[in-house]
Design a protein around this nucleic acid. Structure first.
Lengths: 231, 231
DNA sequence: CTACAGTATCTGGTACGCCATAATACGATT
DNA sequence: AATCGTATTATGGCGTACCAGATACTGTAG
C-alpha cells in the first residue's frame, strides 16, 4: 500500500449508530429539553409510535435512561420521567463541585499554555453566546469548558460521572443561566478558574471551581423554591 | 378493620423484584466475582439458556450493565465483559477519594454519637471478618462502612456514584484486601477517619479518607503491574 | 348514590422470525 | 498451489404477536 495514503485517509466512515442509540438520544433529548415533563408517564407503545421503532428498542432505551436516573420505574405502573427534588439537585451540585474542583486543581498543577488556551476558547464562546442571547449555546459551551477541564488532565471517568449527573439537572441549568446577573458573574467566575490555572495555583483553582458551582447551586435553589411557592 | 391489626402486619411481602432485576443481579455478580472474565464475549442466546430467561430480558440486562461500565459493546461483534485498564482504575480511586473525603468531612462537621456508633459498628465488623479470614465479609463490611459515611449525612446520590464505580474495580478490591499488611493498616486508617469525625475535625476526616483510598490505590497499582508482568 | 362487576389499559415477560453483517470454511479457477 | 469468490454459520439488531397480572375506568344494579 502506498505510504502516501495513510489508513485513516481512505477509511470509510459508517454511521455505525444502531437504531437503539438514535432512539436513546431522541428520548433523552426530549426529556432534557422538556418535551416530556417530570412525572409524565412514558407509555411504551406510545413511544413506539412516536419514535417509529419497535417495543424491543423502546424498552432497552427506557432501561438505559432508568440507569441514568432520568427515568423512574413505578412497580406495576411503568416508567415515568424522574422527578427532581431540591435535595437531590443540591447533592448533584455538591458532587460536581468536588469533582470539578479536583479537575481544576489538577489542571493548575500541570498548568500548560495548551490547557489555558483551550479553556479560554470555551470561555470566549460562552461570552459570545451570552452576547447573542443564545442560551442553548451558552449551555453547550459551558459543558465544553468543563469537558476541557477534565479531558486535559485525562480524567475521562470523572467527566463521565459529571456528565451523567448534569443531564439530570439540565432544566435547572437552563434556568440558572437565564438569571439576570449570571451572564456577568458566570464567566467572571470561570475566568477566575482559568487565572488560577495559569498561575499554577492549585488551591485557588479548586476554590474558584467550587465557588462557581456553589453560586449555580444557590441560584438553582432560589429558582426551585420560587417555582414551588408559585404552584 | 381492627385497630390491633396494623396494615403492615398482614401485608404479604412479595419479592416485587422483576425477573429483569434478578437476572441483572445474577449477571453482575457473575462478572464481579470472576465467573465471566474481562474480555469474555457475552453471547445473548447463551445467556438466555444459562439464566433461563428470554432474550428480551437478557438484552435489557446487557444494556443496563453497559451503562454501568461493566460491559462494553463492540460494534458488529456484540457485548463483552469490559476490560479494566490501570489508568481507569486509578481514576476511579481518585474519584472515590474526592467523594469519600467529602462525606467524611460532612460527618465530622455534624458529628454525633449516632454517626460514630454506626461507623464503629461497621469497623468492628471488618476487624472480626479479618480475624475470621472471611474476605467476602470484609468487602461487605467495608462497603457498609462507606455507605454509613454517606447515608448518615443523607448523601445518597454520592453513595450511588461511589457504588457504581466500585463494582468496576471489585476484583481489584478483593485482591487489595488480601494483601499482607492490609488487615492491619486498613482498619487503622478507617479508625483514623472515625477519630477525626468524633473530634469534629472536618479537615482531618477528609485527609484520613483520602489517605485510605490512596493506600488502596497504591496496592491496586502494585497488584495490577505485578499481574501484567506475569503475563 | 354507592357498590360491584366488567372492561380497557398497560407493563412484564415470552417466543419466534427475519435481516444484516462478519467470520470462516470450502470449493473453483487460473 | 495460491488466490479469489461463494456458501455457511454465528450472532446481533429489530420487529411482531401473544399472554398474564395489575390497575384504572366505567357503567349498571340495588
Amino acid at each position: 500500500m502506498s505510504g502516501a495514503l495513510k489508513d485513516a485517509t481512505i477509511r470509510v466512515e459508517r454511521p455505525a449508530k444502531t437504531l437503539r442509540e438514535l432512539a436513546l438520544d431522541k428520548v433523552r433529548e426530549a426529556i432534557v429539553n422538556g418535551y416530556f415533563r417530570p412525572g409524565d408517564r412514558l407509555v411504551e407503545r406510545d413511544l413506539c409510535a412516536q419514535l417509529g421503532v419497535s417495543r424491543t428498542v423502546v424498552r432497552e432505551v427506557l432501561r438505559h435512561l432508568e440507569s441514568e436516573g432520568l427515568v423512574a420505574n413505578l412497580p406495576n405502573k411503568g416508567p415515568i420521567v424522574a422527578q427532581l427534588d431540591i435535595d437531590e439537585a443540591k447533592q448533584i451540585y455538591e458532587i460536581r463541585g468536588a469533582l470539578e474542583g479536583m479537575a481544576a486543581r489538577l489542571c493548575a498543577e500541570r498548568s500548560s499554555p495548551e490547557i489555558v488556551a483551550a479553556l479560554e476558547e470555551s470561555l470566549t464562546g460562552i461570552r459570545n453566546s451570552y452576547r447573542d442571547n443564545d442560551m442553548a449555546a451558552v449551555l453547550a459551551n459551558t459543558s465544553s469548558f468543563y469537558q476541557t477541564l477534565f479531558t486535559m488532565v485525562d480524567r475521562h471517568v470523572a467527566w463521565g460521572v459529571v456528565n451523567l449527573l448534569t443531564v439530570r439537572i439540565n432544566h435547572l441549568r437552563s434556568m440558572t443561566i437565564k438569571t439576570e446577573r449570571r451572564s456577568i458573574e458566570g464567566p467572571a467566575q470561570m475566568a477566575k478558574i482559568v487565572d488560577a490555572i495559569r498561575r499554577g495555583d492549585g488551591e485557588g483553582a479548586y476554590q474558584a471551581a467550587m465557588d462557581h458551582v456553589a453560586a449555580a447551586c444557590a441560584i438553582a435553589e432560589a429558582v426551585l423554591s420560587a417555582k414551588k411557592s408559585a404552584e
